[in-house]
Structures are given as C-alpha cells and as structure tokens.
Amino acid sequence: MTEARRGSPELGVGVGLRVPHYGRIFAEKPRIDFVEVISENFMGAGGRPRHHLERALELYPLVQHGVSLGIGGPEEPSRAYLESLRELVRRTKTPWVSDHFCWCGAGGAHLHDLLPLPFTPALVRTVADRARKIQDFLGVPFALENTSSYLTYKASTLPEWEFIAEVAERADIGLLFDVNNVFVTAYNHGLDPLRFVEAVPVERIVQIHLAGHTNLGTHIIDTHDGHVVDAVWDLYRLTIERAGAVSTLIEWDDAIPELEVLLAEVERARSERDRALDARRRGGSTLDAAVRAAVRAAARANPGANAVERRGFPQGGPRESAGAERPNEAAE
C-alpha cells in the first residue's frame, strides 16, 4: 500500500465482496488487496450481515460504496440515511466512501436505480453543495462515481466529463472512475470513450471500477455479469497511464462465477495495470493508433440484438437475505 490520491491510500486491486464468495474468501483468504462492500447491505444491520462484515474487516482493507444516496434528486439526501452511513463509516474505518452521480426517485419514492442527471450548471451547484456537506458530515473523503446511462436529457448543456469535473472541483471531493460505465455510456449515446477518459480530472480519482456488461445490440446494460471486455481494458490502461497507480476494483454482481474466475480477473487487472504503469514511466502509451481506433469502433459497433433473458439487475449484487433460510436447521 502506498500513500497517494488526495491523501487516500492506494490499495492495489480488489473485488466487490459478494455473498456467494463469502465462504471461500473467509476460509482461504485469497490474494486480493482489498474488498469493497455495498454500504446499504450493512447499515444498521445485525445478524449474519454484520458478522460477515466483521470477518471481512479482520482479513482485508475494506472500502464502502453506496447505491442509494441519490445526490442529484429533487429532495435533500435523507438525514436518517446519512446518520446510518456515518455509523457504518466509523465502524469500518473506510479510507473513503463513495456513491454515484445520479438520482434515485422523487416525491419520497425510491426506485432503487441509478438514474442519470441532466448535466446543467444548476445541478453542478446543487450536487457540489450537497457533496461538500456530506463529506464534512461523514468525516472521511467522499467520492462520486460516473454512472452507466440509458437516456439523455435535452436540458443537458455540459458534457458528462465536464459536469463531473466541475462538481468535484467545486465540492473538493474525489472521483470513483468507472471505466466500464464510460464505455457503456459512450456506446449508448454515441460518445467517444477516449475523449471521456482524456478529459476527466485524473488527479481526483481515488478508485477505479471495472466490470462486464451485456450488449443487447440496441444498447448496453451495465449488468456486471461477465468478464471485462477488451475495449474496457484498453480504456483502463489509458486511465492508469494518465493517473498513475489507483486502487482498482473488479465488480461481478450477477451470474457470479467460481472464485477462481474472479481471481483470474484480478490478476488480469494487475497485469494491465503494470503494463500501463510501465508505459507511464517511459513516457509512452500502450494505446497506439490501431488500439485507439479499435476502442472507438467497439463503442460504435452494433452486433445485432442478442437474446438475453429479461431480468432485474440489483445494484451492487445480491442482498444477503432470509429468503433461503431453513429455520430450526442451523446448529446453535
């Protein structure tokens, strides 16, 4: 671990800690540099979720990531939610806490989705003001993540990267840069993913997310249900070449594979990261003209509609829930 990134530690390459892997990760402590947990799955919780959180804290550095703040919504973020989050932050001692540039509902409704924001100067001010207050309230560095989006607003007057940069600068917060989300959004809205990566203020990035997605032909859904695709690895190296070493996390939330598959993805991330850091040291880049053209082409390609089962994708993977409980069977 080295000190870097706006005073936040550089943790290496980690994974999102998900229920199907609890048993083996806790028993075998595989070579993972850190784990990330979804804050909402452990807020105010006792019982098995809290027990598993304590186990994870014994084994790995742990960071918290949220999916419910809705910082750009019409209402102020819930005080009760923030108090619960702060209690968890104090328990985990997470080096930073993150959520998304998004809104989650209006009029008291919570839609459990990460809805994209209209990119306007007015919302820059609203989101930045809230982010600064939240960072002060939580007492740890706060970071916001760029989301995958499936719609755009005619009211938007700023490119997404400019919106993100202005909020981060005005609020003095960090960025959680999701490279897969850049690719998904670029594909869905006809943007240049390289331009996105090259415009983001890399000095504010405290963490990177990598994940797989599902290409339905007409659009990509950010399902986190497979391997990171080649174009996203290319964008990841470009990010590292610009930013230097940044804590990097593999998210795999649906169709969760055997642990070995996830660990192989971690090794791939280490390898790609090393390549990019080496190029950075030499003042070069691993993305030559052909690679850059291939990335742009992938973000424009239309592979045709794929037959994919239509199902709901939970933000942050499956909850640990009572649904499969067999009462009176567990030994005390």
Partner: peptide, 28 residues
Amino acid sequence: HLGASERLSAVEQLEIYREQFYLRHTAS
C-alpha cells in the same frame, strides 16, 4: 425532454428504466 440515440427512440430509452424497475423489484 429526452434525446434519442442512433439505435433507440427517446421513449424506448425511458422504457429501459421502467422495465428494470419492475424486474428488479419483482426479483426482490
């Protein structure tokens, strides 16, 4: 209020989120 993409109309994009609302909550 919403933009269309090269592949989807504005309302088709909105429908992606509506469908996910029902699928996600049904799954829960």
